[in-house]
């Protein structure tokens, strides 16, 4: 009866009802206390601006149309990388979970590569792909597939023996068992892996973007690694008179498909 009543209500109020009001209120109060304490001189955070300053700086950036395209780029790289990483992680994970032989042969290799901190891949990715969307995607995909893969392996291997026996005694085929029993039973663990890897994707996208977005590092890296075939090189840029023209030129090299 309650579910029917919920269905009858329009979407807006239902979403509103899902908001955790006490939690949001607490957060707002926390920011207000910070702001008030800073203004009253109770605390002095030298390098950390007040919430009001952060808000107004954000508003300026949005007004200059500099904020949203960048966020859009980050979000699209994060989600694309996550989607590809999830697909490959799930496929490899299920294969490892279902076949004992595949698992025995490949688990040491996987554990070795999984232990590598993702960020150390960044210089290698930059060397191979330059400062490009491909570099960011590769970094995200390679690193974000581990949690999905490992959770898929665990999910499949920890399916209760009772369910496997049930599939056997009801004479379900291999494919039918995988589709109707193993995958649904492994799903809760897989979802945890997907969640972890989404967070990891965002972290890695931002890490991969940092050397490129931060103009000083960008110029330093670009000077060292830019290839002669690129028309727009930092050396040529630095000879132009206008510094704004330089940054516009470098941030949109003709060979790059990056939208920002």
């Amino acid at each position: 009866m309650t579910t029917q009543a919920q269905r009858a209500r329009p979407l807006g109020p239902r979403l509103l009802a899902k908001i955790n009001l006490p939690g949001v209120t607490f957060l707002i109060v926390l920011f207000a206390v910070w702001e008030a304490a800073d203004r009253a001189g109770l605390i002095d955070l030298m390098f950390l601006p007040r919430p009001s300053e952060i808000l107004s700086a954000g508003a300026t950036l949005i007004a200059q149309n500099a904020f949203l395209p960048t966020v859009g780029h980050t979000v699209s790289v994060t989600l694309t990388g996550w989607a590809i990483a999830s697909c490959s992680g799930l496929m490899i994970g299920f294969a490892l979970g279902m076949s004992r032989r595949v698992w025995v042969y490949s688990m040491s290799t996987i554990e070795l590569f999984r232990a590598l901190p993702s960020v150390v891949l960044l210089p290698i990715a930059v060397l191979v792909f330059g400062f490009s969307v491909q570099m960011e995607l590769v970094l995200v995909i390679v690193s974000a597939q581990w949690p999905v893969m490992v959770s898929a392996v665990d999910g499949v291997r920890l399916v209760p023996q009772g369910l496997r026996d049930t599939a056997t005694t009801l004479r379900l085929g291999r494919l039918e068992t995988a589709r109707k029993i193993i995958l649904p039973a492994a799903l809760p663990k897989v979802l945890v892996g997907l969640r972890l890897s989404l967070a990891l994707s965002l972290i890695l996208t931002v890490a991969a973007e940092m050397p490129r977005r931060c103009s000083v590092t960008r110029r330093a890296w670009a000077t060292r690694w830019s290839r002669p075939r690129k028309r727009c090189r930092p050396t040529r840029c630095s000879s132009t008179s206008s510094p704004s023209g330089c940054s516009a030129c470098c941030s949109t090299p003709p060979s790059s498909s990056s939208p920002g």
């Binding site: 209760p160 023996q161 009772g162 369910l163 026996d165 049930t166 005694t169 009801l170 109707k180 029993i181 649904p184 039973a185």
Partner: peptide, 13 residues
């Protein structure tokens, strides 16, 4: 021939 298991909780979907 069909088996019915003691542990019903882990045999049901």
């Amino acid at each position: 021939v069909i088996m019915v298991f003691q542990d019903y909780a882990s045999s049901l979907l």
